[in-house]
Every structure is written in C-alpha cells, then in structure tokens.
Simulated scan of single mutants.
Amino acid sequence: MLDAFERLILKTLQRNGRASTQELSEAVGLSTSPCWRRVKRLEEDGYITRYAAILDRKKLGLHALAHVQVSLADHTEDSINKFQIFVQSNEQVLECSSITGDFDFILKVAATDPETLEKFIMRDLLRLGIVRTTTTNFILRQMKVAGVLPVDI
C-alpha cells in the first residue's frame, strides 16, 4: 500500500519527471533523504516504470493521428505473437490495446499525413498476412491528453 507521501511523490513526478530530489521533498513535505529513499523504492517496486519527455507531435511533423481497429484472421499463438512483435517494433504505433466487441485490437497510430497512414496500413499492417479486417478513424482533435494516472482512487 502507498502512503500519503508516496502518492504525493507519484503525483508530483507525473507532472514534472525532472524534479530534483530537493524540489520533490519540498513539494511533498519530507526531507531529502527519506524522499529519495521513497522514490528509489517506488522505482524498485515498479510503480515508476520509466521517465520520459513528452514531445509535441505536430512540431515533429506528425499531423495525422488515428485509431485503427484490427481483427486478426485467426487467433493462433503464432498469429498473436507475430502481431505483438509488429506492434512492439513499429514506432508509428503509439498504443495498442486488446478490446472486446467486433475487433480484437485497437491501435493509436501517428503519421505525417493521411497518405503515410495509408502506407502503414497497406504496406505494413495488412502485409503481415494475419489481419482479416481493419477500420480506421482519424482523430480530428484531441480534447484531453493527460498521460497522468489518478493516484488517489
């Protein structure tokens, strides 16, 4: 179980992953040594899995963002493994979730433009030979992109 200090540490680090131990200790109300030990324990216990910079996709020229729903042709272990390897190794795939309903997976895919997204689907995804069907929905506008998990629930 996490105590109140650890929850505050997690909340603070989600907002500013570059916070120094001093800044973190001031934000949560602990001295630096206990604060540092708690951060290390949170890392070791897997609560904190990595630190990353959040980039502006549009400044990087990634103007097309879409959800691609995918149904596999079959559900053999080989097909699922092939799909998982593809998803893990393809940088255009930002997220992948196994879902209920008419499709097996939903991907969040970034591309420079609609034509590049089409190439991703036609050249990369469908050529795997394991995909039965896809449906693509372009994201017109993102209203909330948090990336921050609720720690108090």
Rank of each mutant, 00 (worst) to 15 (best):
N81E: 15
A64G: 09
P150L: 02
E26K: 13
T116F: 00
S31C: 07
G29N: 12
F86S: 07
L30S: 05
D113A: 00
A111L: 00
T134Y: 03
S20M: 04
E77M: 07
G147I: 06
T21I: 13
V93P: 05
D102Y: 09
A52N: 05
S20Q: 03
R15S: 14
L30E: 10
L128Y: 04
M1I: 04
L128S: 07
L107V: 05
F5P: 00
L42G: 08
L140E: 08
R15N: 14
L30Q: 08
I54T: 07
V28L: 06
A73Q: 01
K11C: 00
L10V: 04
A19I: 07
R50F: 13
A4C: 05
A19M: 07
D56R: 02
T116L: 00
I130K: 06
G129C: 11
E95S: 12
L42H: 05
V148A: 06
V109F: 01
G17M: 09
M122Q: 13
L107R: 05
H75K: 09
S79Y: 07
L13C: 12
E6Y: 04
K59A: 15
D56S: 11
M143S: 05
K58S: 14
A73T: 12
L24M: 10
T136Q: 09
F105V: 04
G61Y: 13
L62I: 01
K40S: 09
L42K: 01
T76A: 02
G147N: 11
T134W: 06
V87C: 13
R123C: 11
L94I: 10
S25E: 10
Q84F: 02
D152E: 15
D124H: 08
D102L: 14
T49M: 14
R37H: 15
K82S: 12
G29R: 12
L72P: 04
Q22P: 01
H63W: 13
D78F: 06
Q69D: 06
F5Q: 13
I48M: 00
D152A: 15
H63M: 12
A73W: 04
H67G: 01
M143P: 01
E115H: 05
I54G: 02
H75Y: 10
D74Y: 02
K58I: 07
C96Y: 02
E44I: 01
G147A: 10
V93I: 15
V87R: 08
P150V: 03
F5H: 11
T32M: 15
L94W: 07
L62S: 00
E44V: 03
R132S: 12
V70L: 08
L2M: 06
K119W: 03
H75M: 08
E115G: 04
V148Y: 10
M122F: 06
L72A: 03
S98M: 15
T112L: 02
D113E: 02
A4V: 10
Q84G: 11
Y47R: 09
L94K: 09
I106G: 00
K108H: 09
T135E: 13
I85F: 11
L117Y: 00
Q88D: 11
S71T: 11
T135K: 13
L65Y: 02
N137H: 12
L149V: 15
A66W: 10
L60A: 12
E118I: 01
G147R: 09
C35F: 02
A52P: 00
V70R: 01
Q69S: 15
M122H: 04
L10C: 05
D124L: 09
K40C: 09
F83P: 02
S20G: 13
G129L: 09
V87N: 11
A111G: 10
S31V: 11
I139D: 13
